[in-house]
Amino acid sequence: MDLNGKVALVTGGGIRVGRALVLALAKAGCDVLIHYGQSADGAMEVKAEAESLGVKAIAYSANLSDPVATETVIPKAIEAFGKVDILINSASIFPDEDRFYQTDVALWDRIFAINLRAPFQLSQAFAKQIPPDGQGKIININDARIPRPNTDHFAYRLTKRGLWDMTEMMALELAPRITVNALALGQILEPPGEPDPEAFLKAFAEEHIPLKFCGNPKVVTDSVFFLLGQEFLTGSTITLDGGENI
């Protein structure tokens, strides 16, 4: 896909799937704002890689649990690039201690702020800066497990269920100028800190995934380009999990 002249904002763009999205967009000619929270080193590395591909890239830190800080992200992109054509809400948190009896109000508020309120704030600001005769694309990164209720990661699951519904609601509200879609990811990467990623992913696939292999960042970036290329698709969440959650 040729994205020359386009500008994308990717939250959580310094690490993992966010990093892969930034570099794929840059390779396609898209200028990028790389949002990060605490992953400064990763964000600066991916910024340098994106620039080496011939595009303009900036890295910008904002604490998405703070609504005031979140409100600065879209204006920063406009200051740097003059516009934003593509918003990818990729940043989220997944605390291990988030079970029903463990989750206190402070943790609840932090998870909801980063995983749900921030995508809302950013999408609202993004939509407001699209001109009346312009076109925009919003892609939300979600979790393929969400349609099947479980008790693990209690508040996290609620935020991702909310993001699933918000994708459809925003698609209705923002049509026809802006399409809003989502990717619900299964096992794409090993957990952070996993000592033997290859063995983990192989064992997980054998036990849980009908297709018998896990995903990878290219599966995600190819799907993002599919969504960016669609004119007659909005309000959809595409599940990328190899059949794990059927």
Rank of each mutant, 00 (worst) to 15 (best):
residue 208 H to Y: 15
residue 45 E to Q: 15
residue 45 E to V: 13
residue 222 D to G: 11
residue 162 G to D: 07
residue 81 F to H: 05
residue 70 T to N: 01
residue 59 A to C: 09
residue 68 V to Q: 14
residue 95 P to G: 11
residue 176 P to E: 06
residue 181 N to G: 06
residue 126 F to H: 00
residue 97 E to T: 08
residue 166 M to K: 01
residue 169 M to Q: 13
residue 53 L to E: 07
residue 242 G to D: 07
residue 99 R to W: 14
residue 89 N to M: 02
residue 215 G to W: 07
residue 110 R to Y: 06
residue 47 K to N: 02
residue 189 L to H: 10
residue 21 L to D: 00
residue 15 I to R: 15
residue 103 T to C: 13
residue 225 F to N: 06
residue 225 F to R: 01
residue 189 L to S: 10
residue 219 V to T: 13
residue 16 R to M: 04
residue 28 A to E: 11
residue 190 E to Q: 12
residue 223 S to M: 15
residue 104 D to P: 01
residue 197 P to L: 13
residue 146 I to W: 05
residue 73 V to R: 03
residue 107 L to M: 15
residue 235 G to F: 12
residue 42 G to D: 05
residue 44 M to P: 00
residue 238 I to H: 00
residue 107 L to T: 07
residue 234 T to E: 05
residue 183 L to R: 00
residue 91 A to E: 01
residue 183 L to G: 00
residue 111 I to F: 11
residue 27 K to A: 14
residue 204 F to C: 02
residue 62 A to E: 00
residue 1 M to Q: 11
residue 207 E to Y: 06
residue 7 V to E: 01
residue 243 G to S: 05
residue 95 P to A: 13
residue 39 S to P: 01
residue 169 M to L: 14
residue 119 P to G: 06
residue 60 Y to A: 05
residue 88 I to G: 01
residue 123 S to M: 04
residue 71 E to G: 15
residue 217 P to W: 07
residue 196 D to L: 10
residue 24 A to F: 08
residue 125 A to N: 06
residue 68 V to T: 13
residue 115 N to V: 11
residue 30 C to F: 14
residue 220 V to D: 03
residue 45 E to C: 13
residue 184 A to C: 10
residue 114 I to A: 03
residue 184 A to L: 13
residue 115 N to G: 10
residue 57 A to S: 12
residue 72 T to K: 15
residue 138 I to Q: 05
residue 221 T to R: 12
residue 59 A to V: 03
residue 129 Q to A: 09
residue 17 V to I: 15
residue 117 R to N: 08
residue 114 I to W: 04
residue 163 L to D: 01
residue 82 G to D: 07
residue 25 L to Q: 07
residue 51 E to N: 09
residue 114 I to Q: 00
residue 218 K to C: 00
residue 20 A to R: 02
residue 239 T to S: 11
residue 140 N to P: 08
residue 246 I to F: 13
residue 84 V to W: 09
residue 76 K to E: 14
residue 72 T to F: 10
residue 7 V to D: 01
residue 172 L to H: 08
residue 93 I to T: 07
residue 48 A to R: 12
residue 176 P to D: 06
residue 67 P to H: 05
residue 241 D to L: 02
residue 218 K to L: 14
residue 121 Q to E: 04
residue 26 A to Q: 07
residue 45 E to Y: 10
residue 56 K to T: 14
residue 214 C to G: 03
residue 153 H to M: 06
residue 238 I to Y: 05
residue 203 A to T: 13
residue 176 P to M: 10
residue 122 L to S: 02
residue 146 I to C: 11
residue 210 P to R: 02
residue 126 F to I: 05
